[in-house]
Every structure is written in C-alpha cells, then in structure tokens.
C-alpha cells in the first residue's frame, strides 16, 4: 500500500509539472521555472512564521506571491536596466533563495523546515501523514488529496484557457493584435508554476520540481510538434519516471525524488539517442 501511495503522489505531481512545463519550454522560459521553484522559499518561510503552522493555504499564498515577485524582478532587471535575461534570472533566484535560507536560520526555533527538505523533499513520508476525518474515517494520505486538487485545478486552467495559452505561447504579437491579455496569461502561468512548486515542495523538493517541470516535456518535445500530443506524452513520461524512480530508489536505498529525476533523465537520454539514430538513418537513405 505504501508503494501505491508514493507512486500515486509522484505521478500526480509529475503530471501537473509536465503540463505546466510544456508551456514553459515552448515559451522559452524553462529557467524561469527553475528560478521560481527556488525563489518561493522565502515565501514559504514567511507564511510559516505568520501562520505559525504548516497549513497548506498560507503557504500557497506566500509561494504564489513570491513566484510573481520573482518574475516581476526578473522582468524589471531585464527590461528597465538592460541586464541580459540569463543574468537577471540568476541574480534574482539566488538572492531570494539566500534570503529564504537566512530566514530559516534566523527563526530556526520556530520554523520546522530544514535545508535538506527544501532541496530534495521526502516523498517517502507521504503515507505517514494521513487525513483522518472528524468521525475517525481514514481518507488516506493528505498529500494525495492536495496533489489531486492541484492537478484538477491545472486541468481546469488548461482546459478553460487552452486558446489563450496557445495563442500567447506561439504568437505573442498576434495575440496582442487580437486584444488578448498577454500579461494576464503570463502571470497566470507563473502563478500556476508557483502553486505547483510549493505543493510539490514537501514531497520532491525545489530542484527536483525542476526536473519534473523540464525533463518530461523536453523529452516529449523531441518527438512531437503537436501541443496536445506533447501534453499527453510529457504526462506519460512523468508517470513513467515516478514509477521507475520508486523502484530504482528502493533498489539502491536512496532518495525517491532523486531517483525520479534520474529516471526522467534516463528516458530523455533514450529518446534523444533514438532520435539521433533515426535522423542519421533518414539522412543515409
């Protein structure tokens, strides 16, 4: 049963990340996703300090606020002072991450977060944190519910906003000409990335969120140019990574989150090499 819950949570998060990541990659914003996933840390700590607990809602608010602040800062440095994009990303997220770590050390007694947890989470604890209703009924692990809620929300967001996201992703100028709110979709997407990051935080940690955000969509992008197929394929690659990661981790007794990222990378490598071979054959024919 434990294996089932862990794989389920891993898959739920992997699919959420894969869906959002597809858009990030197509918008050439892969590293912005990386930056957000690091920069939400101070938001989480501040929410923790203000609310005094590990409640989900304040953390979501804190993280979403910081996520949007990150994109605003990156844009500000980039557009208002001509700092090149990659440098403004690098400066912003390292600064915010440093602030987060400093806050954790400052309030070490009051914040029950440690640095390891921040970086690579602990999905193995998922089955331990059960949601017991007041009548004493066991609803299963709490994270499962939160992750399912997140996935539903994202599916709703992508379903309702498919056109807006599509058009602002592929042809921003055209979207502007049509009067579609480019900025709205931009910040909506960034907000969604922050939410996903913070929900994934406890189970897979900051850096492995990035693996799930970027690697499965990139793998899918190698073999398709159709957005719908890409969304589907990247979700499949995400789920495969979650399943494979769980068994790899139990095989060598290591971090499950690390193993999920490794399997995702392995899948990417396979697809990449196969594509290279296929291209070579096409050329030689």
């Amino acid at each position: 049963m434990e294996a089932f819950w862990i794989i389920l949570v891993g898959s739920l998060i992997a699919v959420s990340c894969a869906l959002l990541g597809s858009y990030l990659i197509l918008r050439k914003m892969a590293m912005v996703g990386d930056a957000i996933s690091h920069a939400v840390l101070p938001g989480i700590v501040i929410a923790y300090l203000l609310s005094g607990s590990r409640e989900t809602l304040p953390m979501l608010v804190g993280a979403a606020a910081l996520g949007v602040l990150t994109t605003v800062l990156i844009e500000l440095f980039h557009k208002k002072s001509n700092l090149q994009m990659d440098a403004s990303i690098g400066i912003t997220f390292t600064w915010l991450f440093a602030i987060g770590i400093i806050l954790i050390s400052l309030f070490a007694g009051q914040v029950d977060l440690d640095q390891d947890c921040v970086l690579y989470g602990e999905i193995a604890y998922v089955p331990l944190d059960l949601w017991i209703t007041e009548s004493g009924y066991n609803m299963g692990p709490r994270t499962v519910w939160i992750a399912s809620g997140l996935l539903l929300l994202l599916l709703l967001f992508i379903w309702r906003g498919y056109k807006g996201l599509f058009i602002t992703t592929f042809n921003e100028e055209f979207a502007k000409a049509l009067g579609i709110g480019v900025a709205f979709w931009h910040y909506a997407l960034m907000g969604a990335v922050s939410l996903t990051t913070v929900i994934s935080f406890e189970s897979v940690g900051a850096i492995l969120v990035v693996a799930l955000l970027i690697v499965p969509p990139a793998t899918a992008y190698l073999i398709t140019t159709d957005l719908k197929k890409m969304l589907l394929l990247s979700s499949i690659f995400g789920i495969l990574s979650a399943i494979g990661g769980y068994y790899l981790a139990s095989l060598i007794n290591g971090s499950i989150a690390g193993a999920i990222a490794s399997v995702a990378g392995f899948l990417f490598l396979c697809v990449w090499v196969l594509e290279l071979l296929r291209k070579k054959r096409v050329i030689s024919i």
Partner: peptide, 13 residues
C-alpha cells in the same frame, strides 16, 4: 534545465 536537474537528481540519489 535538463542537465542541471537530472545531474542533481542523480547526485541526490
């Protein structure tokens, strides 16, 4: 992004 997160994942593992 791919290299960074995968290598780090392997490292953590």
């Amino acid at each position: 992004g791919i290299i960074l997160s995968v290598f780090f994942g392997v490292g953590i593992l």
